Simulated assay, not measured.
Amino acid sequence: MIPTHTTTLWLPAWARLADQLAPGDVLHRIAARADREQVDAGDEARVARRFDILPRGLPVAALTRQLDAGDAMQFTWLRADPGHVRPDMTSVRMLACGDLGLSPEECEALLKPLKPLFGDEGFPISAPHPARWYLCLPQEARLPVFPPPREVLGDDLLAHLPEGDTGQRWRRLLNEAQVILHNHPLNAQRSAAGKLPVNTLWFWGGGRLPDHVRSAVSQLRSGDVVLNALAARAGVPCVADDAVDSLPPGALLDLRGLHDAVLLQSHWLEPLLQRQRRGDFDTLELDFGDGHLLRWKAGHRWRFWRRHVPA
């Protein structure tokens, strides 16, 4: 039986790798001879191509809460991750969010004065993971749109806060939380020890756990907690392994953080092409962050006349 599985690699933007290539390189050859498609760019679009989520959307907080604590059913969840901001002459810039190296004991100390603030609003706050804090909201809660931390880091935090009547409530809660954290003695201790103080929260990723998540992916290899949470919901095995020989047909390999074209080609592409020629899988799909999509089949190596690579 001829396998028809597609093995997929998620890669950084094509432009990050293209400048490192020379004619004759494996990736250069694939880019010239493979079938090409321009698709929607960005991680949410990539997720939608590999996971069928109903209702549509990507409720990050509910998915990661289920992974962290297993209790996400029947509530709406909002991430309230610890962060560090630094004011300058004209703005308040977000410099860190999520992983600030907090211990569980530090989390509990910081949460203690925050619990009355959010509890009085009916939004209990908790931290089953030091880098991922959560607000538990009623199912019917209406939330403004909060951008993910990656869109806020390095920028003026105030420019990303929601507007309108609904947004006003969350701006107030954020301001009050910042005052509480600014005055917390633990932050003075962290500063004295050369660690970043936790002086803000960032709300994002709100929503309810999807009714179902389905995927044809046979195995996920990724260090991204959202992807792992999504895969767990879909029943897709998540494996921490960088061995090419054990990668099953139909796997999704997350290499978005790999910007070294030489390493990509030697450690991943060349061994995968050898396996493909042996008939282990049918199609190798390279999904780049800027919307370039390449689909390579073993027979494409005979397309000698194709030398042009995407811009």
Results as ranks from 00 to 15, higher is better:
59 P>G: 13
275 R>F: 04
269 L>Q: 02
223 G>K: 06
94 M>C: 14
144 P>Y: 10
8 T>P: 02
185 P>V: 05
42 G>V: 11
90 T>K: 13
132 R>G: 05
38 Q>D: 11
195 K>P: 00
237 P>L: 13
211 D>W: 02
24 G>N: 13
28 H>Q: 10
26 V>I: 15
148 P>H: 12
102 L>P: 12
291 G>P: 08
3 P>W: 08
48 A>I: 03
262 V>G: 06
201 L>P: 10
304 F>V: 12
203 F>N: 05
153 L>S: 07
20 Q>D: 05
220 L>M: 09
4 T>R: 13
154 G>S: 12
171 R>V: 08
141 A>Q: 12
13 A>N: 11
213 V>A: 10
302 W>T: 11
190 R>K: 06
64 T>D: 08
31 A>H: 12
36 R>N: 08
179 V>L: 14
40 D>E: 15
6 T>R: 04
23 P>T: 09
303 R>G: 06
281 F>T: 03
308 H>I: 12
126 S>T: 15
194 G>M: 08
283 T>N: 07
109 A>E: 05
17 L>F: 06
166 T>F: 01
164 G>K: 00
286 L>S: 02
98 G>Q: 09
152 V>Q: 05
187 N>L: 08
85 V>Q: 04
203 F>K: 07
306 R>L: 14
147 P>N: 04
218 S>T: 15
276 Q>Y: 05
216 A>D: 15
222 S>T: 05
260 D>R: 06
137 L>E: 06
307 R>P: 00
234 A>G: 07
248 P>W: 11
280 D>M: 07
66 Q>P: 02
281 F>K: 04
117 L>H: 09
181 L>D: 11
210 P>G: 07
239 V>Y: 04
309 V>D: 02
136 C>M: 14
39 V>I: 13
262 V>I: 11
120 D>P: 00
277 R>L: 11
269 L>Y: 03
298 A>K: 08
247 L>P: 00
176 E>G: 00
36 R>S: 15
250 G>W: 06
251 A>C: 09
226 V>W: 12
190 R>E: 01
199 N>R: 06
177 A>V: 08
155 D>M: 12
33 R>D: 00
98 G>R: 09
102 L>N: 06
104 P>M: 09
92 V>F: 00
73 M>E: 06
98 G>N: 08
298 A>C: 10
2 I>V: 10
39 V>A: 15
185 P>L: 11
294 L>W: 11
19 D>T: 13
150 R>G: 11
225 V>K: 02
134 Y>W: 03
171 R>D: 01
